[in-house]
Design a protein around this nucleic acid. Structure first.
Lengths: 244, 244
DNA sequence: TTAATAGTGTCTATGAGACAGTATCAA
DNA sequence: TTGATACTGTCTCATAGACACTATTAA
């Protein structure tokens, strides 16, 4: 359909175009808490929201990014060095008022990565970068642009999907143990989960492969598992829901 | 955050901007079949995909559309005259190759509207407009741009959400009866649903209000219902799933 | 009275949730 | 041997699914 011999931008377009950006909500679990990666915007420039913390992201580079997801992967790699995380489109936010520079629309992705000693990288346009406790940010922090709204939507999507999918497995390095996986569920859902029911649920969903016993977080070793298919989570037929 | 006194477009932006469009996947049920609204692209112009059928949509008008959803509502109203349907963001598709005019990103919404004698309106840029059987389109029709892929994603999202939400209620005019609602489920899911289980499920979810008996599709009148809250569907704790 | 559909009752199997118990490791 | 945690067994209860049944209307 596309003809590459044409110029990328036809000169007859005279109407104003919105800005197009991509932002990434990167989650991990550190110190038994759900954390999100934020970057600080430069404080001494004419950029909007100077000094404020923001989700990593920026303008689409029509020369480098072949599509939106590639753009998101690029931004994620630039900040974390992670190559193949769980990445899912969250939605898009666009309007006249969200960026003082003009009508803009951002395409937002959310990513899950294991929370280990990742070397975080400052970007050209970010003075600082770091992990922040999600609930603390939602409660107190005022983020740049409408990123507070976006983060809230991302957390809601994550918590809601964790109720009925195997998403938390993407927060762990392989191999992981069932108690470790259970801990991820409990951290994200912020409530205890029954061990027995959890185990039968996970094992009967048939998305895990045994990799042999590994030293877990206790004296007794536990069975290690890896994902049968890393392309996406498994959907359970029911939600986790404690009997009331 | 936005300062309205600044010019809408700062002149210092020198890098190329992608095109920004909004498309709407409008579903209804007609003749006991799930249908989607398509428009035909003009055949005698230098527009891309001349004569092909496409989802209704087009460029964001930064002067008229205050945000993406408003843009979607405008396009939906222009085609159908419907003011307040169920409208949900589906996702966005963007890349260098999807539109021959250059790098473009589209924000896609999907809408559910009752399938009655709606007067469809041709737009300025559409030679023809009409309802099409969804499965027939997915099987045979080749749509403009990547609209085939987008329609497939929309249908998957709809069918999947219908398994565990009250979405099909938005395909009916109020008041509707439980047998009518059940029919909507059966049409979208393309399988029969047990009457007794369906009734208890709907009534125990507590999202319906009785409006008194109405003449249904049979001799015996049935209780009419309306939605307690039209802002969104109710989520059931389990999916519909026939025992195997 | 009949046909047709609205609506109800009842049985059963599944499986989640709760929790107590057993197994296996390091120290 | 002890403590800690991995893992299993079992009981109960909610409820979905299946299907037969009754109720109420128009013709």
């Amino acid at each position: 359909m596309a003809s590459k011999t044409q110029p990328r931008r036809t000169p007859k377009v005279t109407f104003p175009l919105p800005f197009t950006t991509v932002d990434v909500v990167i989650f991990t679990v550190l110190d038994e808490a759900l954390q999100v990666l934020l970057v600080q915007r430069p404080g001494t420039s004419d950029d909007p929201c100077p000094g404020a913390w923001a989700l990593p992201g920026g303008f689409v580079d029509v020369g480098r990014d072949r599509d939106l997801e590639a753009c998101a992967r690029r931004k994620l790699f630039e900040k974390t060095g992670v190559v193949s995380p769980y990445l899912e489109q969250l939605g898009s936010w666009g309007g006249a008022e969200r960026d003082p520079r003009g009508w803009s629309a951002t395409h937002v992705y959310f990513a899950l990565i294991p929370g280990q000693g990742l070397p975080l990288a400052k970007g050209a346009n970010a003075t600082e970068v770091g992990w922040f406790d999600v609930d603390a940010v939602l409660r107190r922090q005022k983020l740049a642009f409408d990123h507070g709204v976006i983060l809230k939507a991302a957390v809601e999507r994550l918590r809601s999907k964790v109720e009925y999918t195997s998403l938390p497995a993407f927060l762990l390095d392989e191999p992981f143990t069932l108690p470790q996986l259970q801990k991820m569920y409990e951290v994200v859902l912020d409530r205890p989960v029954d061990k027995s029911g959890f185990r039968t649920r996970m094992l009967s969903a048939d998305f895990l492969e045994e990799t042999g016993y590994v030293a877990g977080d206790s004296n007794r070793p536990a069975m290690g598992y890896q994902l049968r298919d890393r392309s996406g989570p498994v959907v359970f037929p029911r939600t986790f829901s404690p009997r009331q």
